[in-house]
């Protein structure tokens, strides 16, 4: 039953530790999946089942996604300034910066 996902996790297996998965739960129809936490599992199918046991014991969800943690590229916390602070002071990027033209109702 060695799946392809499993082979992709060779680094985790060498250390004899199950690879890490990120879990996203959708709490009801019409809402988007929200990150709920992470867990260890030998492969994707078992990750889904472990996620069910860990994160939906109290009726929290109607759908679960699991993603290998190493497949997620995260922004660098040290680059916070250049990444996220540049929009500061640029209030013209917000609709509220602009005065409403006369005669335009219901805007």
């Amino acid at each position: 039953m060695m799946s392809q996902e499993n082979e992709g996790q060779a680094a985790g297996q060498q250390a004899n530790v199950w690879p890490l998965w990120e879990v996203f739960v959708r709490s009801s129809r019409g809402l988007s999946h929200v990150h709920a936490g992470s867990l260890h599992a030998p492969d994707a199918e078992m990750a889904l089942r472990n996620a069910r046991d860990l994160y939906t014991r109290r009726n929290e969800g109607v759908s679960i996604w699991v993603v290998p943690s190493e497949a997620i590229m995260a922004s660098d916390p040290d680059a916070k300034g250049s990444f996220f602070e540049s929009p500061q002071g640029k209030d013209y990027r917000h609709a509220t910066y602009y005065t409403k033209s006369e005669g335009v109702k219901h805007l």
Binding site: S27, S28, H33, N59, G61
Partner: peptide, 12 residues
Amino acid sequence: DAAASATRVTPG
């Protein structure tokens, strides 16, 4: 009703 939380709890 549904709140947009991944950990909403209901007894069912």
